[in-house]
């Protein structure tokens, strides 16, 4: 990414390599979440889920999907040289990301009826949401760093791989939640 002195052709070449690296990282990371996902169904099957607030679940899910939408808008804006649009949309993404964190850790964890040491079901709930929240947090930090550098005028329509990387990572976090939301909130009923 230290590529300010490279020619456009070299920058593109390097971008293709960096993009591959990013995706390999995502593939690798996906295995952690896949492991947790499988562990949840291995232990409890499709009949049981933790007793969670459906409405909070829907709200945080919507927030994350919306944030992904704005992250995409920001990236597209940058790709066409519209830095203003990038700043506006990325700022919204960051705010929504923080809202998601507050929704999960600040609300859902606090109103949950049991702690992580109650039983394996709640252990799974806290671990899955915790791992995911950690990734959301790193995603927010990533977006903030790139946003700050964009403010310094580092990226242009031709050279903006960090912008793309932050957005792709953000979408990956969203994809994880796409699977975790039904696994934790929708499938099965709370144990009686």
């Amino acid at each position: 990414m230290s590529t300010g002195t490279l020619s456009i052709a070299d920058y593109h070449k390097k971008t293709v390599t960096n993009r591959l690296g990013l995706w390999l990282f995502i593939v690798s990371d996906a295995f952690v979440f896949a492991g947790l996902f499988i562990a949840r169904f291995y232990l409890y099957g499709a009949g049981v889920r933790p007793e969670l607030s459906q409405i909070v679940g829907l709200i945080v899910t919507s927030i994350l999907v919306l944030s992904s939408f704005f992250a995409n808008r920001g990236e597209v804006s940058m790709a066409y040289g519209d830095t203003k649009g990038y700043f506006r949309n990325t700022l919204i993404t960051i705010i929504l990301g923080i809202a998601f964190l507050i929704g999960v850790v600040g609300v859902e964890w606090q109103i949950a009826p049991y702690g992580p040491d109650h039983d394996a079901l709640w252990s799974l709930f806290y671990t899955m949401t915790g791992f995911h929240a950690f990734h959301v947090l790193t995603g927010v930090i990533f977006l903030v760093i790139v946003y700050r550098n964009a403010r310094k005028g580092l990226y242009t329509a031709e050279r903006h791989f960090p912008v793309e990387a932050a957005a792709v990572y953000w979408h990956f976090v969203d994809v994880v939640w796409v699977f975790f939301y039904p696994a934790l909130y929708l499938i099965g009923l709370p144990p009686i």
């Binding site: 291995y42 992580p116 394996a120 671990t127």
Partner: peptide
């Protein structure tokens, strides 16, 4: 590690966990 530090129960049968996992 979480089981040790936070008392979680993935692998503890008395908490609904399963060591085979």
């Amino acid at each position: 590690l979480f089981e040790r530090v936070f008392g979680m129960g993935f692998f503890a049968p008395d908490k609904g966990g399963n060591p085979i996992l």
